[in-house]
Amino acid sequence: MAPEFSEKGLFEVLEPASQTLPLVFNSPHSGRAYPQGFVSDSRLDALSIRRSEDHFVDELFQAAPALGAPMLLAHFPRAFLDVNREPYELDPRMFEGTLPPYANVSSMRVAGGLGTVPRVVAENMEIYQRRMPVSEALDRIETIYKPYHTCLRSLIVRTHLRFGFAVLVDCHSMPGNIRIAGGQRPDFIIGDRYGTSAAGDLSRAVVRLFEDMGFVVARNKPYAGGFITEHYGRPAKGLHALQIEVNRALYVDETTLQKKPEFDAVQAGISWALSQFAGYVEKYASDSALAAE
């Protein structure tokens, strides 16, 4: 299956020359290699099927390895498989055959068509022309979802063992029509599952960094973090997980999906914020270690 997606494989880790930071970056939704068989089975055209991508987020956060932190990024598209879900959030209406008894068929995400194997892309656009064999969905989970999470878990564990502390930064984008209280359009939303996936000091530090550059920043609303943030964040054990959502209207034309002229400036702003956050995390980890002694 892998050769259909990319010569680089289903996903890859961009490693720093030497990991010097207790940070791990993850871009699970920026994959843009669409296998021809998948496109042929879809009722959507080649542009519409891309509507659920986190467009170019891997490039926006590409400074991470140079700063001294690994970055995991998907090459498979979110429309094909969503690794920011439980492994078996599946809609029985999509499939021919019987789902295994352990499948979660009643989550809000499944109801919205956004399960592990999505039924729709953005704006409720149905992906498939016909039902899919259950075996195909389970094969995607076995051959892509599980290896992806094995890799992500390995990076987090490696980081935690090396530094005694780890922060996962889950990188995403959001539609330009999102509004927050007062009708403002947020440029960034920082999610920490309402303080349960990461220490509040860490998420507040990220908020301040982007606000200092003049961006409108919200915390947890309307995006508090998905399965990855919730699953890997264990602050009491020194394992923190944050989600950063970037407003696509800042850097991409959402009709053509082409980069805007502002792309480079947004990328530079994110790179600066990451460099500042790296210093903050180093000090935070050191202070936490001293407090524990």
Rank of each mutant, 00 (worst) to 15 (best):
T150W: 09
L73K: 09
G68P: 05
K146V: 14
C151M: 13
C151V: 09
L72A: 00
E86P: 11
R43P: 02
F95W: 06
V134D: 04
L44P: 03
V117M: 00
R50W: 05
L47G: 03
E59Y: 05
K146W: 14
Q62D: 15
L72S: 00
R131F: 07
E123K: 12
L152C: 15
R131S: 15
T98K: 13
Y88D: 03
P118H: 11
P87E: 15
Y88R: 03
V120M: 11
A122C: 06
E59N: 11
G68E: 10
P147W: 11
I49T: 08
L44K: 12
P77V: 01
F61C: 13
N124E: 13
A69M: 02
L152G: 03
A137Y: 13
S106R: 15
L138P: 02
R43H: 03
T98M: 10
M71C: 01
E53M: 07
A111P: 01
F95I: 11
M125I: 09
P147D: 09
Q36F: 04
L44Y: 10
E53W: 08
L73S: 04
P133I: 04
M132P: 02
E59H: 09
A111R: 13
E89Q: 14
M125T: 12
G113F: 10
F56T: 11
T143E: 15
I141W: 05
S42G: 11
L73C: 10
Y128W: 15
T150R: 15
N84E: 12
F38Q: 08
E89M: 07
P147S: 02
V121M: 15
R85G: 05
I49S: 13
A63C: 07
T150Y: 08
R93I: 13
L73M: 08
R93M: 11
E123Q: 15
S42Q: 03
Q62P: 00
A103Y: 05
A46G: 00
S135D: 01
I144Y: 10
G37L: 01
A66W: 05
S154W: 01
S154V: 02
A137V: 08
V57W: 03
N124P: 01
S48F: 02
E53F: 11
V83C: 14
G113T: 09
P87F: 07
L44C: 07
Q129Y: 05
V57K: 00
F38I: 08
E136P: 04
L99W: 11
L90T: 09
M94F: 00
F56I: 08
P65I: 03
D139P: 04
H75Y: 09
L72Q: 05
